[in-house]
């Protein structure tokens, strides 16, 4: 499709969304221009929030976008991420040598959840929205039980034990950063690079391989795929499984590469799965778009930390802005279906 038009549409929605945010700011008596400026430029103050937020959202964004192409709404990113986080933490405690077993286990845990929802849909026709939302809660309470009862730190009972040093994903130390070390005194986490590599791999798999082409055909014209020997059910099941795995991997990266432990309310994990839906929508379900959208959402997250201090408005405003952008995007992409009819553009029958 006309990629430039898609990009234009997205940028226009972002502008309209920011304008809506500015209106909200003005209505609250704050300086709208300053507020928006703070929202968009805070990465220098909180680079870690941007980098970590973007890398996690990127993966949960892919986890929503990949099944969506074949017609599945994976609302289970949240639960899949919890499962990946908790399982990778447990594995790191059992095998405290390298991060790899934890990463693999986190991916697998999410993949199993994705597979369950996919299998229920393909074989039994169970709506995946219902099954994934229900699984989210099942995983939430299971995780809470594990955090409180099994993994709790004897000294800080509201937290779990920490991932052992050897099983952590290392950071790039600030001594290697040269002039950037002043902005990033703590160094740079590696997880953003892992996430970007995964997103690029997803892009390559979709657009440079034959199975990826078949996958896109299942989404675009299922009957055509069927009549050309594509096992449609298998493709759908695989896309849900991979999606679950990516959310699980996101959870593992978060634990092994940044937070190293979980609190009893899971507050360090909550929201990333759902944020991924926003990233997928803003990124137009395209892996490259999702990379950009995650960075944008990461910046909004950093901005919302600072806007309270700088512009004296609540942090929730950042969510109003991202919500407005998604809303405008949805409305504008709806236009895509309406506009051709209005213009009388139609192919010959």
């Amino acid at each position: 499709m006309a990629a430039s038009r898609e990009l234009l549409l997205t940028l226009a929605s972002i502008l309209v969304g920011l304008a809506a945010g500015a209106l909200v700011l003005a209505a609250g008596g704050a300086d709208p221009l300053k507020g928006i400026y703070v929202l968009l430029t805070s990465f220098t103050y909180y680079p870690e929030i941007l980098l970590v937020g973007a890398s996690i959202t990127m993966l949960t964004g892919l986890a929503f976008a990949i099944p969506l192409r074949v017609g599945f709404f994976n609302i289970g990113g949240e639960g899949q991420l919890y499962a990946g986080a908790i399982v990778s933490l447990m594995v790191s405690l059992v095998a405290p040598y390298t991060p790899f077993p934890g990463l693999l286990a986190g991916f697998t845990a999410g993949a199993i959840l994705g597979f369950i929802a996919g299998f229920l849909r393909v074989r039994l026709g169970v709506n995946e929205v219902l099954s994934t939302i229900m699984l989210n809660w099942a995983i939430y309470w299971t995780s809470t039980y594990l955090v409180i009862d099994v993994l709790a730190d004897p000294i800080y009972p509201h937290l779990t034990r920490q991932v052992p040093e050897a099983a952590r994903i290392p950071w790039i130390p600030s001594s290697l950063l040269g002039p950037l070390s002043e902005v990033l005194p703590g160094g740079v986490p590696i997880i953003p690079f892992i996430s970007i590599a995964v997103a690029l791999a997803a892009w390559a798999a979709m657009y440079l391989t034959v199975p990826g082409l078949r996958y896109r055909f299942v989404g675009a014209n299922e009957y055509a795929a069927l009549s050309r020997g594509v096992n449609v059910d298998y493709v759908k099941l695989a896309s849900m499984t991979v999606a679950g795995g990516l959310s699980g991997l996101a959870g593992a990266l978060l634990i092994l590469g940044y937070s190293y432990r979980v609190d009893t309310g899971l507050s360090g994990l909550a929201g990333y799965g759902f944020e991924g839906i926003g990233a997928a929508l803003i990124g137009r379900n395209h892996p490259l778009g999702i990379i950009a959208a995650s960075v944008f959402l990461g910046e909004l997250a950093a901005g919302s930390e600072r806007i309270q201090v700088e512009a004296n408005v609540p942090a929730e405003l950042a969510e109003v802005v991202s919500g407005a952008i998604i809303f405008v995007l949805a409305a504008l992409s709806g236009l895509k279906y309406v506009a051709p009819r209005l213009l009388g553009v139609k192919s010959e029958g």
């Binding site: 499709m1 896109r216 675009a220 014209n221 009957y223 055509a224 009549s227």
Partner: peptide, 17 residues
């Protein structure tokens, strides 16, 4: 109509077949 994916490109459709 049933054999091609209309919003995908000519190249994608050709390659798919």
């Amino acid at each position: 109509v049933r054999a091609l994916a209309h919003e995908l490109s000519v190249a994608d459709n050709a390659a798919f077949i």
